[in-house]
Each structure stands twice: as C-alpha cells, then as structure tokens.
C-alpha cells in the first residue's frame, strides 16, 4: 500500500515539539525511529496528517547511569545505543540483552526504547526487562511532567495511559541493589528478523542470608500487555531459593499469562514456554545474584 500523505515537523527542542503536538492535536503522531510507525502507516492504514519528529530534539538521545540515580534513557535514545552502553551492560544485563537481540541491527540502529514501549505491543522486547527493573516513564506535556510506573503504563495491545499530547522525555530505571541478578530470555523460531513468541525477564535480589529480598518476573507476548507475575514473585520473596522453589515459582508464571493462538505460536505452546523460560531466567538470576558483584 502507498504511504499516506503527511507533513513532517522537525523541532529542535522539547518545547517546540510539545507546541506542535498541541497545535495539530488531532491527526498528529510522534516520529522517532519510525520502524513501527511507518510500517503501520504503509501497511495497516494508520493515518496522520502531521508527524512530529523527535530526531533533532536536543538532548533526547542521552543515556546516563549513576549509582545514586540509576539509569536515565532519553526519549529518543536508540535500542542499539542503549544495548551497548557500558552502564546498561554492567547493571542491567536483561535490558542490554533485549536491546541487542531484538529485531535486526538496522532496526536497532533506528528504533528507540521509548518507541518500543509507547507502541505497547504485547511482544515489545524491552518491556519485560524494564518491568523487572521497576522502570518509570517521565512524560511531559505543556502543563508539566509526570512520572508513570511502567507497570501502570500498558492498557492493552497498542494502548497505554500516555495522553495524546504527552511525550516520553525519559525512562528512569532505579539502580539495582547489591546481590542482585537479572536476565531476559526470549524464544522465537528464528534468530533474527523476528518477534519474540515468548519473552521472560526476571530479577532476584538476595539479602545477606541469601534469602530473596525482592523478586520481579515479567512476561512479554503472552497477554494483551506485558505483565508481571505477582504470584511467582510472592512465592519467592522472603524464601531461601532452592532449585525446587525456583521450579515451582517458574511454573506458577503460567497463571499470570493469557496467551493467544496466532501465526507465530499457539497458546498452549506459549504457556509451556512461559514455564520453561521463567525457570531458566530464575536460575540464571539466582546464579548472578549469588555470584553477585553488582
């Protein structure tokens, strides 16, 4: 299908971008990497008369990590840059992994983490790791800014709580505590040019005695939105994590998902994989947390 016609605005500041959004209210979309948006416009009939590009907005590509503040990912920071940022690689291995295996190198060079979240695809690869890390989004509009917890962000396939005139300025991810391990596993039939049929991210934080202080488990591609596995998290928190417990907790994740049958996989397969991947992720998290330098 042919691309619908639109005007492209290329503001240099966030203020200009916000002005443009409110000026064109209806029929305006934000353009960052364009990898999802342009596909939807060309293939799926999505229309917009105005695109406001974030690609020339100063400072929006920043990625920074400090022990005291954690990680701040700029609203236009691209997947590849996030994936190979030293702070991300060191402290957020699950996110680094997601950013360096999803889609293709070209798409990772173009697409942004914020875009991946804002599109609210159930299969968004960065969502599960960021849920596990307890990330929040900083959304700005002309009147001010607000912080939205990622776990409150998604509303359904393609739907989020972001208001039409808001822009994600940054994603904030708290610094992981000591004795913490995290991991992300995805499954698809092919290595690349692919969408995960199932994705599981986890984080385990141990106390000095080796008990689980905090556990976070999140699933991608197996429900209308990326979801947390609260039951599994509660099973583990406060417990001494032995293998049997990890297996049981991983198995319980199946109850947190509501997968569908589609071209990529059947619901039954997805359910089975949630368990397998959750168990693998938990084991890996535990090993990292116990060996835990960071």
């Amino acid at each position: 299908m042919a691309m619908p016609h639109f005007t492209v605005h290329q503001p240099k500041t966030l203020e200009q971008a916000l002005d443009l959004l409110s000026r064109h209210r209806s029929g305006v979309k934000l353009l960052a990497g364009g990898t999802d948006l342009l596909m939807k416009m060309r293939q799926a009939g999505l229309k917009a008369e105005h695109l406001v590009s974030l690609n020339r907005v100063e400072g929006l590509r920043t990625i920074s990590y400090r022990d005291e503040d954690g990680l701040v990912i700029g609203g236009a920071a691209r997947l590849a840059d996030v994936g190979r940022h030293p702070g991300v690689a060191q402290h957020y291995p699950a996110l680094a992994h997601a950013c360096s295996v999803m889609a293709t190198p070209q798409i990772r060079n173009m697409g942004t983490v914020a875009g991946n979240l804002v599109n609210a695809a159930p299969s968004a690869d960065t969502a599960a790791p960021l849920l596990a890390y307890g990330a929040s989004l900083v959304a700005v509009e002309r009147g001010g800014r607000r912080q939205i917890k990622l776990q409150d962000f998604f509303r359904g396939p393609g739907l989020s709580v972001l208001e039409p005139l808001e822009i994600v300025e940054a994603i904030r991810v708290p610094a992981p505590p000591a004795r913490c391990g995290s991991a992300y596993e995805r499954l698809s039939a092919r290595s690349q040019v692919d969408i995960a049929a199932v994705g599981v991210a986890g984080l385990l934080n141990l106390d000095l005695e080796g008990r689980v202080l905090r556990c976070r488990l999140a699933l991608g591609a197996v429900a209308p939105t990326p979801v947390r596995c609260l039951e599994a998290e509660q099973m583990l928190e406060g417990q001494a994590p032995d293998e049997a417990l990890l297996m049981r907790a991983g198995a319980s994740c199946v109850r947190s998902c509501q997968p569908i049958d589609d071209v990529r996989a059947s619901a039954a397969f997805r359910r089975a994989m949630v368990q397998v991947l959750a168990q693998r992720v938990l084991k890996r998290c535990l090993a990292l947390a116990q060996g835990g330098a960071s």
Partner: peptide, 16 residues
C-alpha cells in the same frame, strides 16, 4: 495468506 512479511514468513538468517 496470513504471513505476508518476511517478519512472519521465516526464512533462515545468517545466524540460523
């Protein structure tokens, strides 16, 4: 036909 992109018509990549 349901899979009309190379995303969903999966032919092997260099890694496969």
């Amino acid at each position: 036909t349901l899979n009309t992109t190379f995303l969903d018509y999966k032919m092997p990549t260099a890694q496969d």
